[in-house]
Amino acid sequence: NRRVIAMPSVRKYAREKGVDIRLVQGTGKNGRVLKEDIDAWLAG
Rank of each mutant, 00 (worst) to 15 (best):
V10R: 01
D20Y: 06
M7N: 15
A43V: 12
L34V: 11
V4A: 05
A40V: 12
L42V: 11
D20P: 09
K29A: 11
L34Q: 09
P8L: 11
D20K: 06
K35D: 04
M7G: 15
P8A: 14
R3I: 14
W41P: 01
I21T: 03
R3W: 04
A43E: 12
G26W: 03
D37E: 01
R32P: 01
I21E: 02
S9N: 11
G31H: 09
K17W: 09
I5T: 07
E36K: 15
G28T: 03
R2S: 10
Q25F: 15
N30R: 14
Q25L: 14
R22L: 10
A6E: 02
A6Y: 03
K35I: 09
T27F: 04
A43I: 13
E16I: 12
S9M: 11
D39T: 08
K17M: 14
A43G: 11
A40N: 13
V24D: 00
K12Q: 09
Q25R: 14
Y13S: 02
Y13P: 00
N1I: 14
R15L: 11
M7T: 15
V10W: 02
T27H: 08
R15M: 10
E16G: 10
G26P: 10
V10E: 06
G31D: 07
K35F: 08
T27K: 06
I38W: 00
P8F: 05
V4R: 04
N30H: 13
E16Y: 13
K35N: 06
I38L: 04
G26M: 02
V10G: 01
K29S: 10
K35A: 08
K17S: 10
G26R: 03
V24W: 02
V19E: 00
V4L: 07
D37I: 00
L23N: 10
R3G: 13
E36L: 15
K29Y: 12
I5G: 04
L42P: 04
L42E: 06
L34P: 00
L42W: 07
K29C: 08
N1L: 04
R15H: 11
V24F: 03
V24Y: 01
N1H: 11
R3S: 09
G18W: 08
L42T: 07
S9I: 11
A6L: 02
D39W: 05
E36Q: 15
P8Y: 07
V24Q: 01
Y13Q: 03
L23V: 13
V19Y: 01
D37H: 02
G44F: 14
V10M: 03
N30M: 13
R15V: 10
G18L: 09
V10Y: 01
M7F: 15
I21Y: 05
R32V: 06
R2P: 11
A40T: 13
V33E: 00
V4K: 07
V19Q: 01
L42G: 05
L34I: 11
N30P: 02
S9G: 11
A40R: 15
R22E: 09
I5D: 06
L23A: 11
I21M: 06
A6T: 05
D39F: 05
W41A: 06
K29H: 10
M7I: 09
Y13R: 03
K29M: 11
G31L: 07
W41T: 05
K35T: 08
P8S: 10
A14H: 00
A40L: 13
N1E: 14
I5S: 07
R22C: 10
V19A: 05
R22K: 09
R2N: 15
R11A: 04
K35Q: 09
W41H: 09
L23E: 10
R15G: 07
D37R: 00
A14Y: 01
G26T: 04
N30E: 10
E16T: 12
E16M: 14
G18I: 04
L42K: 07
V19C: 08
Y13N: 02
E16W: 12
V4M: 04
W41I: 06
V33S: 01
G44A: 14
R2K: 15
V4E: 04
L42M: 12
V4F: 04
T27N: 07
S9R: 14
R32A: 11
L42F: 09
V10S: 03
D39M: 08
A14N: 00
L23F: 12
G31S: 08
V33A: 03
L23H: 10
N30F: 14
L23D: 09
R22T: 11
A14F: 01
T27I: 03
Y13E: 03
E16D: 12
L23Q: 13
A43N: 12
K12V: 06
Q25S: 13
V10C: 05
G44W: 14
L34A: 05
P8M: 09
K12I: 07
K12E: 06
I38V: 13
E16K: 14
S9L: 10
M7R: 15
N30I: 07
D20W: 07
K35G: 04
V10D: 04
R15E: 06
R3L: 11
N1D: 15
R22Q: 11
V33F: 01
V24K: 01
R11G: 02
G44V: 13
V10A: 05
Q25C: 11
G44H: 14
R3P: 15
A40Y: 12
R2T: 15
G31K: 07
R15F: 12
A6V: 05
V4G: 05
R3T: 13
M7K: 15
V4S: 04
I38K: 00
Q25E: 13
K35L: 10
R3D: 15
L42C: 08
V33L: 05
K35H: 08
L23Y: 13
A14R: 00
R2Q: 13
R2M: 10
G26E: 02
E16R: 15
R3C: 06
E36R: 15
Y13L: 05
A6M: 03
P8H: 11
K12A: 09
Q25N: 13
I38A: 01
G28I: 03
V24S: 01
L34K: 11
D20R: 06
D39A: 05
K29F: 12
Q25K: 14
G44R: 15
K17E: 06
A40G: 10
V4Q: 06
A14C: 06
K12F: 08
L23M: 13
G31V: 02
E36N: 13
K35S: 07
M7D: 15
R32L: 08
S9P: 06
G26K: 02
